[in-house]
Amino acid sequence: MSTSGRTGDGNASAASDVAAVLGESAFVRVLTRADGDCLAAAGLLAHALREQGVPYQVRVARFGATSEASAESDDTIVTVGLDCAADATLESDATPASVTAFDAANELEASPDVTLALAGVIAGGHPPGAGESAHLLESGGFEQRPGVGIPTDDLADGLAHTTLAHADYSGDAGAVQATLAELGLPAELDESAHRKIASEFALATIDAPQANARAADAVERALRPHETPAGPFATLEGYADVLDSVARERPGTGVALALGHEARDPALAAWRDHAQAAHAALAEGTTGRYDGLFVLRTEDAPVETVARLLRDFRSPEPIALVVGDGVAAAAASEDCGVGATMSDAAGATEGTGGGTARRGYAEFDTDTKEFLGAFREARR
C-alpha cells in the first residue's frame, strides 16, 4: 500500500473505502483507541483479514497516540477512533466504529460476528439497533428481556461490578448480595423477578444522595438487556461492559477477546478489577466544583471510566474531569471541544493528549494541581 494517500485530518472512511484498502493490502497495522467500540471494530477487521489470508497486527492506544509508521513503510495503516496518519480511518462518535467495521467485513465477503459488533455499539454509548446499527440487530435475532445487562449469571457479581451505572453499593458484592436477599427472589428468575431487580438497581442509582439529574437517563443503558445465548457473555450489554473495561485495564487481553481467542475468564477478572477501582474512586475521591466543571482527584484509578461515570451519575456540571497521578480524563454531556482542551492542557504540562468534542484523555509530567490549572486555562 502506498503511503502517499495517508492523512491525519480525522476524515472518516466509508465502509466500502475501508474494504477497498484492506482488499489490496499485503500487511495491515490496526491502531485502535482503548475503548469497547473501537476494540470491537478492530476485532471485526482482524477477523475479516484472517479470512482473507492477510497478516495483521493490532495495537491499542489512547488519545494522543501516533501511528508510528515510517514514511517509507509499505504496510497498510488503519486507525480506529484516533486521529493519526493512516490509509483508512474509522471514526466512532456519530457512527459506531463497530458498525463501519462490520459493513466493511461484509464488503470483503467475510463473516463478521454480529454479537461482537452490537456489543461494540453499546460500548460506544449507542442504543443497539438505533440508527445505522438497525441492520445488525435485525440480523442477530437477539431477545430483549426485563432486568439489568450484566455479563455473568451471578447477579451479585454482575450488579457489583457493572460500570454501566454507579450506585452506593457498586463495587461491593457482599452489599449487593444483602440487598438481593431482601427482594425474595425465586431460585429460577422469571420476568417478574427480573423487573424487580431492575427497579431496585435503578432506584439505588437514582436515589443515591449525590446522584445528579442525568442519572435517571444514564441508567437506562443498563436496563432491558438483550440475551446472547451463543455469545461469550450473558447479555449484549454485559459484553459491552467487559469490552470497554478490558480495553483500558488489560489491552492485550482485550485484543485476544475481540479476536475470538479463549479469553473470557481473564477478561472477567480484568472487568472486576477495573470496576472496583472505578467505583472506589467515585466513592472516595476528592471533588471540587468550578464554573461548568466538576473535578475529582484520585491517586490510582481508571480515569476514563471514572470520568464517564462521574459525568453521568454525580457531576452537577456539564464537564467532569478526573485527575490522577500523571493521567487525566474528561467527559462532557454536550459537544464543547473537550478533546482540544485536553490537548492544550497536556501540551502546557509537558504531556500528550487529545480526544473528541465530548471526551478527552491526557498524560502529563507535572502535579495534579498544575494540570488542573492548565485545563481550566485552556477552557477560557
Rank of each mutant, 00 (worst) to 15 (best):
H135N: 09
L189T: 01
A215E: 08
F233L: 12
G129E: 04
G158V: 06
V255W: 14
H194W: 14
F201D: 00
V246W: 04
A198E: 10
D241C: 10
L137K: 08
L155R: 04
L164E: 04
G238K: 04
L164G: 15
R221T: 15
T253R: 12
A156N: 02
D154E: 12
A178L: 15
D190V: 12
R214W: 02
G254M: 15
D244N: 15
T163G: 01
T205I: 01
T152I: 12
Y169V: 00
S192G: 10
A218K: 08
A211C: 04
G149S: 05
D207P: 01
D190T: 07
A165Y: 15
G171Q: 12
S133W: 11
S245C: 15
E200N: 03
V246M: 06
G238M: 10
L257V: 07
K196A: 13
A181T: 03
G120A: 11
L137S: 07
A222H: 02
T179I: 02
T253D: 14
G147Q: 11
D172W: 01
A119E: 12
P232E: 09
A165C: 10
R248E: 07
P128G: 08
D217F: 02
G231A: 08
S133E: 13
L185E: 00
G147H: 11
E249N: 10
G141V: 13
E188M: 08
A156H: 02
E191V: 06
P186W: 08
H135L: 03
L257N: 01
G174K: 13
P209M: 07
T205V: 15
A130Y: 13
G140M: 13
A187I: 10
E188N: 05
L243T: 13
A202P: 03
G141F: 09
G158L: 11
T179H: 09
L137V: 14
P209N: 03
P225I: 11
P251R: 07
A167E: 00
H226S: 06
S245W: 07
G171L: 09
E227G: 08
T162Q: 14
D207H: 02
T152F: 09
R250I: 03
V255A: 07
E220A: 09
R195S: 14
G129D: 07
A240P: 03
L189W: 06
A213I: 09
H226A: 06
Q210I: 06
D217W: 00
T163M: 11
N212F: 02
